[in-house]
Design a protein around this nucleic acid. Structure first.
Lengths: 356, 356
DNA sequence: TCGGTTTACGAAATCGGTTTCGTTTCGAGT
DNA sequence: ACTCGAAACGAAACCGATTTCGTAAACCGA
């Protein structure tokens, strides 16, 4: 039996036209599907102004929208960016997501997101799911533990790392200039009169970011000849040598300056300080990475190393787009872009917690 | 010219096999593509155990993954859920995203997200973009101003509203049981000895959630015969009759109890209180919606109406899946599910800010 | 007016799966 | 042994766009 009459019969009727196909539009405009396709993707120059107008009119009138699945199949491009986020509870991540969303939208791309919740297994699963779903490229804010899998993925499609590096090397990375930020915080604390500096970190966090900040911190100390150390918190607010609040009390009055290596650590610091009373002990100065909204308010304002999330997001998408374009354009593997490390400067919000 | 020999020539060679197609798998397993397809979608019973094993082996060995675009095209299903979030900075939203991500993943779906940033225009744009991208259904946490567009979308594909209703009615909605939560907070404040209660809201927020909470609040007051009112903050922390901090100072000592209608308002309340000093004025009790991590810490702990984000997310996805199944199964519009309003109970975290 | 380019457009192949429908095979019942 | 129904599987249509390739028309300089 020959193919059933194609449903182009919604003409001037309020009937149940299931869904317009490019074929129907073509028929109604009196042109071929190929021409309509050319119109949709506004291919260079081709096409009479008159034809163009006729097609435009039909599309306008029918409210036709091309089916993405069909388009993707043929062009093997989905205008889709996959994003894997380690910890969405972190305001850094949510700000990033908002930025990525905006930057992607500006390029006509959508975001497909997965939240790993700092779980390596979930991260691995997200990786394959997003790839299977046909994303054009991947933004990964890894929680660690999947270095080979991520490297493998980077071999199959464009990948840009966000904020956190993986062992492999060889993959694009966009991050804040952590060294500069550490220097800024040390400056602030030193200017506030602190004579002994501590960088507070967490045992469970062994990310490259943490390591980078710790390295920058110790370098900075020795460079300036300042006393200080990196203090690692065990679970539950305990430091290596006891409870955090006790440690702080012991130090109090000795012109101690503290840096929380990230928002999570800062939260725990705040909890510990709350044990001691509503305001900062005399002589204690504090500062932190990550600009939570509450940083304005706590202790009259906490000096913060703020990352430029919008710029980071923009650069991530930009870089990823470059790679995607290369992949869909180039034939061989020869012309691949060399992996790049992009550092975005942040800035220090000077607030009351480091005032003299 | 006849079709070029299909690239099934990666056999036992480490060569550049572009990408396996179902056809290649079929050939290598000595079966037809149809059978492989049946295997992939494990269609009921069909297929010898032996055939199944042979196909499995080939897929395992080649690492074949079916192309999503092709699958979507034919089955007109993408296993994709679109999510539009009004304000990702709100921890409620990020928690929700995490929950949605998990629930969707459990059903083999991915999430396509758009952040409207409380911008109606962006929201509208996201709406069409996600639909064009071919999502099977939509979760909308609207910022308002697009009621008709959302209603129209709900006419074309499954839509579930998250936390915020739209004028139209007739669309599924999952939300917290706000009335119960308001009652809980009023209970807590009353038990703490507050004699005059205020619900703090914001002028710019005219969402149904806010209205619902306000209504519940006034109802509760009159029901108990308590004094109090809804206070709307203008921009910059000013109330209708002056600055928020002044207003609070005036009230202080008069056994005032405060409820912030959401996390944003609470942030402003905290800022205002910070003007007055590090701890709560005597006699002032406070509480808020939305369980930010800092609520544990501020003022020794702030009594909070916490929403059960995980359950909300789960129910949203569940409901959406139901609708999606109906759409892809049923032919006519007859068997459509009636719109439903689902309320998820939350709970009150009792903390120091409402202790006696 | 005529050969030679462009330019506008259509026919048909194609992307890679899924699905329908028909055929063959197998086993059970008598 | 024969019939009949179910189970296993294959051939080919199909989903709805894009893209290649070819052709007819328009343009253009000599």
């Amino acid at each position: 039996m020959p193919k059933m009459a194609q449903t182009a019969d919604n003409w001037e009727t309020g009937c149940a036209m299931a869904q317009m196909r490019i074929k129907d539009i073509a028929a109604e405009a009196g042109v071929s599907p190929a021409t309509v396709s050319r119109y949709l993707n506004n291919r260079p120059g081709q096409m009479t102004e008159e034809t163009r107008a006729r097609i435009a009119a039909v599309i306008e009138r029918t409210g036709y929208r091309p089916r993405a699945a069909a388009r993707n199949l043929r062009s093997s491009r989905a205008n889709l960016i996959g994003v894997i986020l380690a910890d969405i509870a972190n305001p850094f991540s949510s700000a990033m997501l908002e930025g990525l969303s905006a930057s992607a939208a500006a390029r006509g791309c959508s975001l497909m997101t997965a939240i790993s919740g700092n779980d390596s297994a979930k991260e691995a699963e997200s990786l394959t799911r997003l790839i299977d779903a046909g994303v054009d490229g991947l933004v990964v804010n890894t929680c660690g533990g999947n270095d080979e899998a991520i490297a493998a993925a980077a071999g199959r499609l464009p990948v840009v790392l966000l904020d956190r590096d993986v062992a492999d090397g060889g993959i694009d990375l966009v991050t804040s200039n952590n060294r500069e930020l550490v220097t800024g915080l040390v400056d602030a604390l030193a200017a506030a009169g602190s004579e002994r500096l501590c960088l507070l970190t967490e045992a469970s966090d062994d990310s490259p970011v943490r390591r980078e900040r710790a390295k920058a911190f110790t370098d900075e100390l020795s460079h300036r000849g300042l006393a200080g150390e990196v203090v690692t918190l065990a679970d539950g607010g305990a430091t290596g040598v006891g409870r955090l609040d006790e440690t702080i009390r012991d130090y109090a009055g000795k012109k101690l300056g503290l840096i929380a290596v990230n928002g999570l650590v800062f939260l725990r610091l705040t909890e510990a300080l709350a044990q001691l009373g509503p305001s900062l002990p005399a002589g204690l100065k504090i500062s932190t990475f990550d600009d939570y909204p509450w940083n304005h308010v706590l202790f009259g304002g906490v000096t913060t190393a703020a990352q430029d999330t919008l710029t980071i997001a923009e650069r991530v998408v930009e870089r990823l787009s470059e790679r995607i374009d290369v992949v869909t354009t180039t034939v061989g593997d020869a012309a691949k872009l060399a992996p790049k490390r992009i550092e975005i400067p942040g800035h220090i919000e000077h607030r009351a917690s480091t005032s003299r």
